[in-house]
Design a protein around this nucleic acid. Sequence first.
RNA 1: GCGCGCGUAGCUCAGUGGAUAGAGCGUUGGCCUCCGGAGCCAAAGGUCGCAGGUUCGAAUCCUGCCGCGCGUGCCA
Length: 556
Amino acid sequence: MTTAPLTSLQAAIAAEAAAVAGTTGVHVELGPPARPEHGDLATPVAMTLARAAKRNPREIAEALAERLRARPDTAAALEAVEVAGPGFLNLRLAPAWVTDAVRTVAAAGPGFGRGGVARPERILLEFVSTNPTGPIHIGHARGAAYGDSVGRILSFVGHAVTREYYINDHGAQMELFAASVAARYAELVGAEPHMPEGGYPGEYVIGIARALREELGDAYDGRVSPPDAGTLELFGRRGGELMLDVIRGTLERFRVSYDEFFSERTLHQTGRVEAGVRRLVDSGDAYEADGAVWFRTTAYGDEKDRVLVRSGGGTTYLAADVAYHLDKAARMGDRMIDVLGADHHGYIGRLRAVLAAGGFDPDTLEVLIMQLVGLTESGEAKRMSKRAGTIVLLDDLIDDIGVDAARFFLVERSHDTAFELDLDLAREQSQENPVYYVQYAHARCCSILAKAAAEGVTRDPAAGPPQVLDPSERALALRLAEWPRTVADAAERRAPHRVVAYLKDLSRDLHAFYHRCRVVGEAREVQAFRMELTVATRDVVRCGLDLVGVTAPDRM
RNA sequence: GCGCGCGUAGCUCAGUGGAUAGAGCGUUGGCCUCCGGAGCCAAAGGUCGCAGGUUCGAAUCCUGCCGCGCGUGCCA
């Protein structure tokens, strides 16, 4: 990892601030001031220190300013250091510092900001994990775009991430699915269909039935009306596999990748669900009552105990999740992250109880809850029902607006905010979509560099810094310097929308720079600096877009 | 009832203790002899749900209330 330009400046200020206050380990907030006329950077560190030091913040700020002016490296980096307001320190960067910073960014290329995390972790990231009873729809799509982006960002800053999909290929929903496939199969072979109550009416079930018929030939034609147990078992298992293939195809198309697909069915088959329940019973964390086996989750802060084995004999979803999460805990490394839909948030306490009962630190489980995506069409909320087959599929959304726009849209807002996606707007706006704004910034950089190449202009590392900088150059350079902190912040908060917001800001800075400054054909120092600025911007935009799974075309 | 999340510009949303709260879309008015106008510049638009509290400083933290969403299954 390249040392980020702002990091060393920040460290120098922290050292001097500590000296002034007579303490150690001072954290320095260093960022753009609220108003541009206050300079390039500002820090409230003097005010932060004032309380503990019991001194006037302005007095501390003045002393700190003195030291920064006297210290050689900060004196060279800073053109002006001023105390303002209640004790802010406003900094103005010297052109040479700005030039060096941009050179550093450009030299690092698309890897600028990589590996910035202080303590790398091994993280098991689970997301989407829908049961294979139907295709991926808009509700899953947000979790897919979000989870994949978080994975990319965590990896980028230096964590070792394993991405996992938990296949819910067992249970009542799968049985309904198997029966639904059998009913469609019966239709295909001209037999009486037995569609179960609450079965899956979607068209795709016909496709699964057709594929099965092709695999099986006519061997099952007489066993589907009504289906026998063996038929249902096969149709559920094989139908689920075929459905999962469809899901994987959609995810791949959506540029979402996994390291592992973990089947719930195998947990049951290998007896690990039973073993998990037994383990809880043995440790006293589960007990029998009313003919059922209960998990004593109240011992871990839940409001009531939860059933693991029904009085009728079957295990619950939670029982499988006990086995699954104990398995994950054993192999996760340092941490596991579950990305779950909003309708599962009541589940968090139970999952933490699983870990605690298993002897693991429940804080190693992090549950990220996706709020819902609502759809509006023609100004009205679109009613969607999986069972009625009126759901909007991810494949359809991609056909409408493309992968780039869909992914950009879905991670543009914080994951804990419910938002409405207006389908009409999403369709009509495909030309006005913010994704084009950012992609255009990248294409524009490429265009400038193509022009430079055509004119025989190359990068010029030996050129000195320009005498003066245009405000748009300063703004763009500073924005680039902030990238490592932005991406580190996005990783820490699991917040890809911060990357998106940054890219929009960066693009705005680039476009403004473009309109005020020419690159090719300027005086040597100016042209050299602007070439670096253009290269650095191109690479950071490309990198940021890649972190949210969006392409960066050279031409549009 | 209880638990979690959310109330910020007309709309969609950023902003988890710092200065006069921001962006996009929409509205209004300017800018193409140019490395791409899928762009730029400017204007208008706010009791940050309400009321207290914590402190040098609160959209941000605490308490209460109001409103919206989700959850509160021997469903998954």
